[in-house]
Every structure is written in C-alpha cells, then in structure tokens.
Amino acid sequence: GLTEEQKQEIREAFDLFDTDGSGTIDAKELKVAMRALGFEPKKEEIKKMISEIDKDGSGTIDFEEFLTMMTA
C-alpha cells in the first residue's frame, strides 16, 4: 500500500491538474497536465487515457481513479 506521504503527494498532483476545483479531472485538464509534463497528446490519446482510467464511465477522472493510475 501507499504511505500517507505518498498519498498526499498524489493528492497535490491531482489538485494541480483539477484546475477548476471540481474534484475530477476532465479531458481538457488532463491535456493541460500532460503538456506541463512535456507531452503533446492528441485528442484521441487523451480520450483513450481517460477511458482506460475512468472505471465508472463518467468521462472524468476522480481521485480514486487517479490514485489507481499513479500506482499501477
């Protein structure tokens, strides 16, 4: 499992990506986040990433899903 410290770091990354503070990361926010990390993702790639992570089919990534992605 994760230490509380690791969870906190992932939470901070999540909050950075969640620019509108909605508690979820949408495609637009993910794209901005990827760019910040030096990637140039295409729209299809973003969609694919979200569909792989987005277990509940909401079209957005919540913290639990993000946590799973970061620790996979």
Score class of each variant (00 low, 15 high):
65 E>S: 12
31 K>P: 09
33 A>L: 15
58 S>C: 07
43 K>M: 15
26 D>A: 08
53 I>A: 10
35 R>G: 05
37 L>T: 02
8 Q>F: 09
43 K>I: 14
55 K>V: 09
41 P>A: 13
71 T>W: 13
68 T>K: 11
37 L>E: 01
69 M>C: 12
68 T>H: 12
10 I>M: 11
5 E>Q: 12
68 T>D: 05
63 F>Y: 05
40 E>N: 15
5 E>Y: 09
29 E>Q: 13
39 F>G: 01
44 E>K: 07
57 G>N: 08
9 E>S: 13
19 T>H: 12
21 G>E: 04
5 E>C: 14
38 G>Q: 02
46 I>P: 01
16 L>M: 11
43 K>W: 14
59 G>Y: 08
27 A>I: 15
47 K>L: 14
47 K>R: 10
18 D>F: 06
28 K>R: 10
47 K>D: 15
71 T>G: 07
45 E>T: 11
5 E>L: 09
62 D>I: 04
57 G>Y: 07
24 T>C: 09
50 I>S: 02
11 R>G: 01
27 A>M: 12
66 F>L: 03
29 E>H: 13
46 I>R: 01
69 M>L: 11
21 G>R: 10
10 I>E: 00
20 D>Q: 06
53 I>E: 03
51 S>W: 09
27 A>K: 06
35 R>C: 13
15 D>H: 09
33 A>E: 00
56 D>Y: 09
54 D>E: 09
25 I>A: 00
71 T>N: 04
7 K>T: 08
22 S>A: 04
12 E>H: 13
15 D>A: 13
55 K>R: 08
39 F>R: 06
1 G>S: 10
16 L>Q: 07
52 E>Q: 12
66 F>S: 00
23 G>D: 02
54 D>N: 09
65 E>H: 07
42 K>C: 14
48 K>V: 05
26 D>G: 08
10 I>D: 00
28 K>V: 06
72 A>M: 14
35 R>S: 07
63 F>D: 00
1 G>T: 11
7 K>L: 13
2 L>F: 11
1 G>C: 14
19 T>K: 11
39 F>M: 06
56 D>G: 06
25 I>P: 00
23 G>C: 07
67 L>G: 00
13 A>N: 02
70 M>W: 13
10 I>L: 12
29 E>D: 14
60 T>V: 10
34 M>A: 02
27 A>R: 08
72 A>T: 08
37 L>G: 02
69 M>D: 00
51 S>T: 08
16 L>Y: 12
69 M>H: 04
69 M>W: 15
46 I>Y: 06
38 G>H: 03
61 I>Q: 00
46 I>H: 03
37 L>A: 05
62 D>M: 06
63 F>C: 01
57 G>S: 04
44 E>M: 09
43 K>Q: 13
67 L>T: 02
10 I>H: 03
36 A>S: 09
28 K>I: 07
37 L>V: 04
65 E>T: 15
60 T>G: 06
42 K>W: 09
49 M>T: 02
15 D>S: 11
14 F>D: 01
33 A>P: 01
15 D>Y: 10
50 I>L: 15
16 L>K: 11
42 K>V: 09
59 G>L: 07
51 S>G: 07
42 K>T: 15
40 E>H: 14
62 D>S: 15
70 M>L: 12
29 E>S: 12
3 T>S: 10
28 K>E: 13
9 E>I: 13
51 S>K: 08
30 L>S: 01
67 L>P: 00
9 E>C: 15
69 M>K: 02
66 F>D: 00
44 E>Y: 05
22 S>M: 03
55 K>T: 08
36 A>E: 04
58 S>R: 08
35 R>M: 09
30 L>D: 00
66 F>W: 06
15 D>E: 07
53 I>L: 12
43 K>T: 15
17 F>K: 01
17 F>A: 15
64 E>Q: 10
33 A>W: 12
